[in-house]
Design a binder for these strands. Structure first.
Lengths: 362, 362
DNA sequence: TTGAAAGCGCTAACAC
DNA sequence: GTGTTAGCGCTTTCAA
């Protein structure tokens, strides 16, 4: 602990026998006073232990906080362990650093609905990263008179957004699996609403999901498979509230227990896919010969394992969100930035075994 | 972008025909006014688009910003990719969340000496994570009249600190290697000062290193090996400015090129050790038969690879830093928290081959 | 080049 | 239960 005694711009001015303006200028507009006087001011400041203009008072006066607020959906611990979230965070932090803006993590616990922290944050704008459309913290952010940018989800009218084409991206992936011959697939997805539901998600729940990203990806899959005659209502979709490899593994177990015919596990995130791979291995299922597994995000560990997935530019997304927020609010600029994705064909996907092979081995 | 028109507590009060105090109370002390009046105030606020009390003005008045500043030494990109730093960040964020405090990342670029961002941050205190003892940003932080806690380094008189017993921890590791029979060792360490020096670090540089942690670890190694008659001035110590696996690999290459007799590579971080392992593999050196490699930190990837290392509780360290800062400044509480470490004997360390074995194979 | 005056929007004593 | 008064510490016209 380290504390100094107080001293204000006014007391410094009094001590020096000059006006407060002059002291202020010594710090903020060096060209507005003689070098000699400035030297004296700074010198006296040091002697008195004056730490320079108080940032909060300055903020009140200038109406600039010099910081960007960040609202994260997940528990902090999850966010800090999710490579995609970290990539976003890094990109955003970089953008802030470039603009000399602080990055203020808003202390929010998704379990509780306490919105006060949003109102307490002294920031010039907010970046909201991937929250459900009915998140009360999001509502609180939007009620504040500062610019806001949403990353990924949800889509809010009149609010800038940076994201990807979730539907198109996953349809491309689905098409690939379809071409390989997969018709009996299963899906493992992240939470679809704020209430915990660790288990199968019926079509109704899929369609009314409060997480735009998950809803869109499921819709894309449904659409792609419907085209080749797959009845989506019979496709098992297992939902997990927590986003972790353990969740992916248990979801895969649940799905494979219930439906042994599945030839491909489509996961809506790489983290979940990593868990699914673990579970497949545990069961002695060979990937991709016995089971195809796909992810979404393009995280480093997935790449190392050769995971078939969709890569999205998370770092760029964070940078874009920061730039969008920090850019002068030009009403003519695009209200939505859609970043490109890339289908990565790894070694975890292949044509399904034929019925014959399933009985007699490869 | 989303902007609302302004409205202040005063204008609301005028509209309602009540005093500002009453409006303020409606938000901050609901028990100080009748529920009916409060309802009316909030209702009118909604109608007028009043977003609630301005956080900056409130901060100025209450002298509380509701946020903790975090000063990171490395480039943001490095920090976000260093598991140890991330663990610390997670712990700190958790502590802040628990106390309802925001976490304000100070936008600082270690390459530049611009200290203004430190002065601009509206925070109630600072956590400084692992910076050199001559860091100008640290000086700026200490000049501000708010509590400060330093994590790891440096040690500053009168400033609270949370860290580990670097000397003891690495001496234990060294003792282990000595017991195994290692006498010809090499060291790979992180930057020792703010100037870039990618190469061998003479004893003089080791002793005057501005990074307390690195200096102490090297000193601990030196002391342990001196006890068994090793002349430390002949022990190759390779320094790398950037903290990455690539650095670890190139440092290992440089060291092994210069000194083929080395039987053990002691790295002062797991990240560097990971790189060293890669380089060893590339050269066809078997670990641990041909070469022992050790790390420091205890990161997950190292654990998976069976790296011999010292585990330190990074998450706890972050939490401890937060708690120390947020605790009421009780002058009797300890000014220094030293967290326990644990020697992890993995599969990357073993007795060195004898000269005979080196010639005739294992 | 320097100073005087006027708030930025809010909260906390204290009085009514 | 509600209002009055007095700043928190600073920047910024504008005038000298």
């Amino acid at each position: 602990m380290h504390v100094r005694r107080p001293a204000t711009l006014a007391s410094l001015a009094a001590e020096l026998g000059v006006s407060r303006t002059t002291v202020s200028n010594a710090y903020n507009r060096p060209d507005q006073l003689s070098p000699e006087l400035r030297r004296r001011v700074l010198e006296t400041a040091r002697r008195l232990g004056y730490p320079g203009p108080d940032p909060v008072a300055r903020s009140l006066r200038t109406r600039k906080a010099g910081a960007v607020g960040l609202l994260l959906t997940e528990n902090l611990s999850y966010a800090f362990r999710d490579p995609a979230a970290l990539g976003f965070l890094e990109g955003l932090a970089l953008a802030c650093e470039g603009a000399g803006q602080g990055l203020h993590l808003v202390p929010v616990n998704p379990e509780r609905e306490d919105v006060a922290a949003v109102h307490r944050a002294g920031v010039d704008g907010f970046v909201v990263y991937s929250v459900p459309d009915d998140d009360p913290h999001l509502a609180a952010v939007l009620s504040r008179p500062v610019p806001t940018v949403v990353a990924d989800q949800p889509t809010v009218d009149g609010v800038d957004r940076v994201g990807i084409d979730d539907r198109g991206a996953i349809m491309e992936l689905a098409q690939q699996l379809i071409t390989l011959g997969h018709r009996k697939v299963g899906v493992i997805c992240m939470r679809l609403a704020r209430d915990r539901n660790d288990g199968f998600a019926p079509v109704e729940r899929q369609k009314t999901a409060h997480f735009h990203v998950q809803r869109t990806r499921l819709a894309g899959l449904s659409e792609a498979f419907a085209k080749v005659g797959v009845d989506w209502s019979r496709v098992p979709v297992v939902e997990r509230f927590d986003h972790s490899t353990a969740s992916g593994a248990s979801a895969a177990a649940q799905l494979l227990d219930a439906d042994r015919d599945v030839t491909a596990l489509i996961c809506t995130s790489d983290i979940l896919a990593l868990g699914a791979l673990t579970e497949a291995k545990r069961r002695g299922l060979r990937v991709p010969q016995d089971l195809t597994v796909t992810g979404f995000d393009g995280i480093a560990e997935g790449e190392r394992l050769g995971l078939t997935t969709v890569r999205q530019p998370v770092l760029e997304k964070g940078k874009a969100a920061g730039k969008l927020l920090l850019a002068s609010p030009d009403p003519t600029r695009p209200r939505e930035i859609t970043l490109p994705t890339e289908l990565i064909l790894g070694t975890t996907s292949a044509a399904p075994r034929t019925a014959e092979e399933r009985w007699f081995g490869p």
